[in-house]
Amino acid sequence: MIVPASPALIRDAFPDSVRRTRAVSVWAMAGSSGAAAGPEAGGLLSQVSWLMIFFVNIPVGLAGLALPARTVPVSVVRCLSTGPASSQPWSRRVP
């Protein structure tokens, strides 16, 4: 559910085409490097202890919570905090 939504969030967060291109490039690089390094890192961690593959998610999850606080523009946060779409005037049905 996150992968299809992330390009839409990038498009809304970066209206300038130059900055959007860089954001999509970083997004693609992060996804592809994670897909390439994940199996190798899991194999190395399982050599130490198979439980380590679960504990590695703690710092990754904390980084996933901390990084958007520093990198997501305030306008996107303001847009996301306005509530559900049904509360927007343009989404109301006209009887």
Rank of each mutant, 00 (worst) to 15 (best):
R20F: 07
V26C: 03
V72I: 15
S81I: 06
V3S: 07
I10K: 03
S49Y: 00
T82F: 01
P68C: 15
S46V: 02
A37S: 11
G43I: 07
R19W: 04
L67D: 15
A28G: 07
L45F: 04
R93L: 14
G38T: 09
L9N: 05
L62Q: 11
G31S: 08
G34R: 06
V18K: 11
T71S: 14
G61T: 14
A35Y: 05
S87T: 13
V76S: 15
A69H: 12
S91Q: 08
S49T: 02
A69S: 15
V48N: 00
I2W: 08
S46C: 01
I53L: 06
V76H: 06
P15N: 06
F14E: 10
P59A: 07
L44G: 00
Q47K: 05
M52C: 05
A36L: 12
F55G: 14
V48W: 04
V77G: 10
S6P: 01
A5E: 00
A66D: 13
P73T: 10
A8F: 05
L45Q: 01
P4T: 05
L51G: 06
V48H: 01
L67Y: 11
S6F: 06
R22D: 03
A30F: 11
V18T: 11
P15G: 10
W27N: 14
G34P: 05
T82H: 09
M29R: 04
V56I: 13
S81N: 12
R20E: 08
A35K: 02
W90M: 12
R11L: 06
W90A: 15
L65R: 14
S32E: 04
C79H: 09
T21I: 02
R11I: 05
S25W: 12
W50K: 03
P15A: 09
A23D: 08
F14M: 08
P89E: 10
R20T: 03
G31R: 04
L9F: 12
L51T: 02
S75H: 14
L80S: 15
S33C: 10
M29N: 02
T21W: 03
V26W: 13
L65K: 13
R92V: 11
A85F: 12
A63D: 10
L45S: 00
L51D: 03
A63G: 13
S17D: 12
S32P: 03
A5G: 07
A37I: 14
L80I: 10
M1K: 04
I2M: 10
S25P: 10
G31D: 01
T21A: 12
S32G: 12
L9H: 03
G42D: 04
R11C: 03
A28L: 11
A35L: 09
D16M: 08
P95C: 03
L67T: 15
P95T: 05
R11W: 01
S86V: 13
P15K: 06
S49K: 00
S49Q: 00
G61L: 15
S46P: 01
A66P: 09
L9D: 05
S75G: 12
R19S: 13
P39C: 05
I58E: 08
L51N: 03
S33L: 14
V94C: 06
V56E: 02
Q47N: 01
V18D: 11
L67G: 15
